[in-house]
């Protein structure tokens, strides 16, 4: 039960950007709501405005864009991603990641873009997007800009998104199409849980890309490695970029250990596409 706020559902992107220009610093953007509304339960104060982006006609769904790659819009839910034939055939790691998020009900609402914008260190989609070298497009009344996902997160639940901006797309580059990738997620139970540690690993174009979640203030990605890099070296590189903590969920030690285990498993399991 929330402190009262006002709700608005702009129908066009320009309407949305206008609202953000005027009230962005007193508003929350609402897509799936599974993070925003869960947070608002405890908020001491309500935002003035909750802006529902799901009725914005100009926002695209999931499509292939010539010259770019796979473009996912703010209305696409995790279920949409998981079930999309385009994603499953051409960018299967994203379908795997979307399938690991939450429960069926949560997946029907949660969006990959929302997941990125909440920027939890545990974000389930983040490691996959990082491993695939994705970038996001942000728009405001001032204009458009693009930010690679590996520059998108700046701290725990902090991103580069300005109060007057909205993420309109996340794009996985065309040269990652068909990339062989998979993900491991450490939980406390087999039912839905957030990640205590997660690893997404991609083998593509002679390269190895490894991204890790829940082991640093933000999801992190290793520098690209040659595909022949021995497992031990990959694990050593991973240990350089992660800074896991002890908390009620797991110890830093176990997280570190499991990151190594996951890298080993994924390296053994993923066959690079010929």
């Amino acid at each position: 039960m929330f402190h009262p706020f006002s709700y608005v559902a702009p129908r066009t992107k320009s309407e949305l950007l206008g609202i953000l220009r005027d009230d962005g610093d007193r508003s929350r953007l609402l897509a799936g709501g599974t993070d925003v509304l869960a947070e608002l339960r405890f908020a001491r104060e309500a935002p003035k405005l909750v802006i529902d982006i799901k009725k914005v006609r100009d926002f695209q769904g999931i499509r292939l864009v010539e010259g770019e790659g796979l473009s996912i819009g703010p209305r696409a839910t995790c279920t949409d991603v998981l079930e999309s034939p385009v994603v499953r055939q051409r960018y299967p790691l994203l379908a795997i990641a979307a399938g690991k998020l939450g429960s069926p009900q949560l997946r029907n609402r949660a969006t990959p873009i929302g997941n990125l914008c909440t920027a939890s260190p545990c974000a389930d989609m983040a490691a996959a997007f990082l491993a695939l070298g994705a970038w996001v497009e942000l728009e405001s009344a001032q204009g458009v800009r693009r930010v690679p996902v590996d520059s998108f997160f700046v701290g725990v639940k902090q991103t580069v998104v300005e109060p007057d901006e909205v993420v309109t797309r996340v794009v996985v580059p065309a040269d990652m199409e068909g990339a062989a990738g998979d993900m491991e997620k450490l939980k406390r139970i087999r039912g839905h849980d957030l990640a205590l540690a997660s690893v997404a690993l991609v083998k593509h174009g002679g390269k190895l890309r490894v991204a890790i979640g829940s082991c640093a203030p933000t999801p992190v990605v290793l520098p690209e490695l040659p595909i022949e890099t021995p497992v031990e070296e990959v694990v050593a590189e991973a240990h350089k970029v992660i800074k896991p903590i002890d908390d009620v969920r797991a110890s830093a030690e176990y997280r570190t250990f499991m990151v190594g285990v996951f890298i080993e498993r994924l390296m053994a399991r993923i066959e690079p596409q010929q």
Binding site: Y7, A9, L30, G33, D52, T79, R109
Partner: peptide, 27 residues
């Protein structure tokens, strides 16, 4: 739970199950 975890509030909205505790009425 009011937090989208337990599913007691599950309904079908436009053909899909959702936790209605995490959907605003105006949505």
């Amino acid at each position: 739970c009011g937090a989208g975890e337990c599913g007691a509030c599950t309904i079908i909205m436009d053909g899909r199950t959702v936790n209605s505790c995490l959907v605003l009425a105006p949505e």
